[in-house]
Nucleic acid binder design. Sequence first.
DNA 1: CTACTTGCAAATCATTTGCAGATGA
DNA 2: TCATCTGCAAATGATTTGCAAGTAG
Lengths: 157, 157
Amino acid sequence: MSGSFTLGPVHVKLPPAERFGQFLESRGKRITRQRRLIVDTVFSHHDHFDADELMDHLQELIAQRKVSRPTVYRTLSELVEAGMLRTMTLGGRSVYEHEYGYPSHDHLYCQMCNKLIEFHSAELEQIRDAAAREHDFEVISHRMFVTGTCAECRRNR
Amino acid sequence: MSGSFTLGPVHVKLPPAERFGQFLESRGKRITRQRRLIVDTVFSHHDHFDADELMDHLQELIAQRKVSRPTVYRTLSELVEAGMLRTMTLGGRSVYEHEYGYPSHDHLYCQMCNKLIEFHSAELEQIRDAAAREHDFEVISHRMFVTGTCAECRRNR
DNA sequence: CTACTTGCAAATCATTTGCAGATGA
DNA sequence: TCATCTGCAAATGATTTGCAAGTAG
């Protein structure tokens, strides 16, 4: 499909670990074994997760004392600062999702089974921007949650 | 503007305390002095508030032991159950707003001064419903948060 | 080297709960 | 009467922090 030349790496996304490495360096922070393990684990799954679920995935490392609970929390915060994760609160706990390398989207939240269904709408963003303009407000991001009941749960009830 | 006849009290809203009273009765719960004091205080202000801010408004009653901290929390939950308050989490704490007798709206959230600006958009609801329909999802309600910077904070920075 | 990190144990802090006495219907 | 409430003190539980030892650069 290609000849012998390559286009420059325009818009090529770095792997999450590298992107995080850049962030850390830019802040004079260090790339440690723990931080590497955590980013890799975080970006090897594409679901929404909370700190405990992440620690389930890291259970062996935690058992071996290679990573600790506080470090997981500290690193999650750094990933949010780095703009690589987004966080929201659901039922009293922080839930994270990938922001890096993952398209922006909104959520349908089923209050029966707690499932999160993602959807995207360009129009939604236009309306958001129009509303912001009216209030002379500068948008950074938004979050839309639609609560209700999914098809499956309606069938089962 | 009117003659000597009145239209029936169609769509007339009950005062919050009465509406809450109906809810309590329907559940076999009692209308107590504390619950009355709390609903009245909650609906005498139209801002967003958290439990502590509400307790500031109730400070004298709390000092006099007429109302206690746990009862405030318990009653707030009941008001949410009753559909009279909505709740969201902001900065680790639960924030409440009136749902009863207050038009539905969305929020612009200024991350510099933490101000919440309300706006309403009918189109937003249409888009929400369209997205839900596509996923065969039954909507109960939604919540939209636009994070950014308000005009005032942009001026001051 | 030495400043940044980590794991541990302990602290936080909003919210919740057990319980005995108080109270609404 | 008596089931429902309330205030109190204590418990919860996710997340954070102080600190001494470990480690990246």
